[in-house]
Design a protein around this nucleic acid. Structure first.
Lengths: 239, 239
DNA sequence: CTTTTTAACTGGTTGATACCACTTTGAGTT
DNA sequence: AACTCAAAGTGGTATCAACCAGTTAAAAAG
């Protein structure tokens, strides 16, 4: 049971890229095709994947090059993780797990998680703090069928993603996030320890696994004055 | 001078998707191939693009489905291609170029653009509208040495990125963006036609070209009730 | 020697074909 | 009626071939 060819090419090219300098030119597609003994389609599949993840960029008529950002920023393309972001800034991140319960989701949530009529979901409410100060208030929904017997005690020593990965063997691959600016209502403002009506980031996140199946849907509220959302956008759009 | 086939397919499928419900099944690749009279390669190219942009998702052995990624959809976000994203949604995107002047940037701006002590920058102020309604107020700084003799008339018929690419051969590759929630002050609230103190997204963007040189720094304010910022985060795993 | 043109690169698009891996369905068996 | 399993359908991987569209450098022209 061997991995697909294009994934083998990806792995090899990743090693090659790591040894190269930013903006250095990679072998052309036709050279790679000979080197690996595969078709050009397969090479292009691999390159496309590397481009999507920001490791390389391609210029029509010129060639394929190592992206510069990758080397400077180790966390490139990684799924956004609250604790990782904070520890990188030297702050201490803690999480208060407020509650975990099995609920019948609203139609909107069920739609996001691809749940059928009578399927339930876990509702996890968390408060994230930095240096003991509230930063983000999150409500997470997880399909019950994917994570049977999830316990709040599972989350005592591990992060949520750690539990999903180790206990349920669920790997998140892509997260879609929508970010909006809102005014805080009363209950949330109390959680975040700010005045009612304060500006806040409302973040919707939907995470899917490698089978394109949704494994998580989270709605977060973050303090506008203490929280910055960071992202990187790659220019791969059609012109 | 015709658009590539797969892009025509994309446009047509976008129209189809808009009429469908979340999680509804699309025609199979082999059905689409007959319908459009193109090869399966072309169909898959189109579907792959739609999948990347989160409009559809595919399940091995089951089919291709309409994504539920759009939430309330008051607007589609992604500052990166404001006009393209909007026209794709069937909305009419327009830009009012308020002013363009050559200025001596603040140290903060100069730092972002890698400018030396006495180097100047163009300051471009724009108001972006959707269906005639103000959505985003942007102030953009461009290094004068990279874009000599930039004229506001250049922007009459083309987008900013179009001008940068065609007149100056500058290709943006990566944009770093920081997003924050703020309350709008008086002048900005008037521009965006909302009450003072309304929640707003403040977006800092730094764009870098293929030589790793900063070519643009923009600070934007977007209406919190009408603008959603969307991003996609990839995990390190190979799909 | 400078300019122009051509040829040889580069990645981008498209077609045709085949088989693999996973899911659902339905015919056949028990 | 329930079960088994083959067939048909789905997207995923892979090859071969050809041409298009930008870019660059070498050859030809002035």
């Amino acid at each position: 049971m061997q991995k697909p060819l294009y994934q083998q090419v990806i792995l090899d090219l990743e090693g090659l890229i790591k040894k190269m300098k930013p903006n250095e030119k990679l072998p052309s597609e036709r050279q790679l095709l000979v080197k690996y003994g595969v078709s050009r389609n397969t090479i292009r599949l691999a390159l496309q994947n590397l481009e999507e993840r920001g490791l390389i960029y391609r210029l029509h008529g010129k060639g394929t090059f190592v992206s510069s950002i990758y080397l400077d920023r180790p966390n490139i393309g990684g799924i956004y993780s609250f604790s990782e972001e904070l520890t990188r800034e030297g702050q201490k991140a803690t999480t208060q797990n407020q509650s975990l319960e099995l609920v019948m989701p609203t139609t909107k949530i069920a739609e996001q998680l691809n749940l059928a009529e009578n399927e339930q979901a876990y509702k996890l409410v968390r408060l994230r703090l930095a240096n003991g100060q509230p930063r983000m208030f999150s409500t997470t929904y997880l399909p019950e069928k994917l994570f049977p017997k999830l316990e709040i005690t599972d989350l005592r020593s591990k992060t949520l993603y750690g539990v999903l990965k180790e206990k349920y063997n669920q790997l998140s691959v892509i997260a879609f996030e929508d970010v909006q600016a809102v005014s805080l209502g009363k209950p949330e403002s109390e959680y975040l320890d700010v005045k009612e009506g304060s500006p806040s980031l409302k973040i919707y996140r939907k995470t899917i696994n490698d089978k394109n199946i949704p494994i998580e849907f989270t709605i977060s509220l973050a303090r506008g004055d203490k929280f910055i959302y960071r992202s990187r956008q790659y220019n791969d759009l059609i012109k």
